[in-house]
């Protein structure tokens, strides 16, 4: 599974970037949009690392927590529009889960702007670019997340 290979890349590794933004995207729509963005020369911030999942419905909330604890400054989740999920309802499940996770992140001192869920269809290369650019600059405003340097319990 390439999810695993992708996950193995440590988000906090020295990239020479001011920010580490992880984008967990679904294979069917958002990843296609990213592909399309590439093809049509729509650039998105280099700080963003794409991690491909088969579906947003398989994104365990623990992956998101892990990303933050390991030093991500922002986590972006991109999936199919509601009604579009290849597996019918994975995106809707992701939506509920993330809703439930927000208070947990808040308790951990991770402002909600650091996690964004967005629906990006296969032909929305432009939207992908806009969303990722917008998200990255919002994260930049917040500065690097403190878990990044912190010696964690």
């Amino acid at each position: 599974m390439n999810t695993q290979d992708n996950l193995k890349r440590h988000p906090g590794e020295e990239t020479g970037q001011d920010l580490n933004v992880l984008a967990l995207v679904c294979n069917w729509c958002t990843y296609t949009a990213a592909d399309l963005a590439g093809v049509t020369r729509l650039k998105y911030p280099t700080q963003v690392k794409l991690i491909r999942f088969m579906c947003t419905g398989m994104i365990d909330v623990r992956y998101i927590l892990r990303c933050f604890l390991e030093g991500a400054d922002g986590v972006f989740i991109g999936g199919c529009h509601p009604g579009d999920c290849h597996y019918l309802s994975g995106n809707l499940k992701a939506r509920v889960r993330i809703k439930g996770l927000r208070p947990v992140l808040e308790m951990a001192g991770i402002p909600e702007q650091r996690l964004r869920l967005s629906w990006i269809g296969a032909s929305e290369g432009k939207k992908l670019q806009e969303e990722l650019t917008g998200f990255t600059s919002e994260v930049r405003k917040l500065g690097p997340a403190s878990f990044r340097q912190m010696h964690l319990v």
């Binding site: 088969m54 398989m58 994104i59 365990d60 597996y87 309802s89 499940k93």
Partner: peptide
């Protein structure tokens, strides 16, 4: 099973 992983996430 179509391998969507919803069961694993939940």
């Amino acid at each position: 099973c179509q391998g969507c992983g919803a069961c694993i996430a939940v």
